[in-house]
């Protein structure tokens, strides 16, 4: 098994930490992982993205042109990464702030209203965990128990009391995932 993912959005949305939690979860189930961020001027107020690979075998390139899954959290990233999803791959996005919705017919497209749900839960910081939950609903590549173990590893102990809240956010994401039909612009639950 190998899963090549790009997560892209604004700096501050938790893009890099979502990738880190995924990578840690992979380690918890004995997988090889790589986490390759875009770094530098892009991150300051602009876009941020991270390539995460989980694999049962040694990972060759941490830097890729095409991905199994793109998790897209703003319009700039949609413009940049929609075409990098492999045929039959997955595109998961938050429609918040998206004016040009994806149009590709050869991939599977899903929506998660992460920003809206996070606002409803009254905690903007768990936005990325809601999105992660939605992704894991589509592709359960890591077990929930390993995500929790990964969270324990990646968060310092003084934040461990927030783990139940993170779990709740993941559950919320799983519950609210929607499939997006590009032809009819209809969203199925």
């Amino acid at each position: 098994m190998s899963e090549e993912i790009i997560i892209a959005g604004f700096g501050g949305q938790g893009v890099l930490s979502m990738g880190k939690i995924l990578a840690y979860s992979g380690i918890m189930q004995d997988q090889e992982v790589s986490w390759m961020p875009s770094y530098g001027p892009e991150m300051r107020g602009g876009t941020a993205n991270v390539t995460v690979i989980l694999s049962d075998e040694r990972i060759s390139s941490p830097y890729l042109k095409v991905y199994d899954t793109a998790i897209i959290l703003n319009q700039q990233s949609m413009d940049k990464f929609e075409n990098t999803v492999k045929p039959d791959g997955i595109l998961l996005y938050d429609p918040n702030g998206i004016t040009h919705h994806p149009t590709r017919k050869d991939i599977k497209i899903y929506q998660i209203e992460g920003a809206k749900l996070a606002a409803e839960m009254d905690n903007k910081k768990i936005f990325n965990m809601i999105v992660l939950g939605a992704f894991l609903k589509i592709k359960p590549i890591v077990k929930l128990e390993n995500v929790i173990k990964g969270l324990k590893k990646s968060l310092s102990e003084r934040y461990h009391h927030l783990i139940p809240l993170n779990k709740e956010a993941i559950d919320t994401g799983m519950k609210h995932l929607k499939k997006f039909n590009i032809e009819k612009h209809i969203i199925h639950n």
Partner: peptide, 10 residues
């Protein structure tokens, strides 16, 4: 280089 320095792995 910047790629190996900035990336995370096990």
């Amino acid at each position: 280089d910047g790629l190996i320095g900035q990336m995370m792995e096990k």
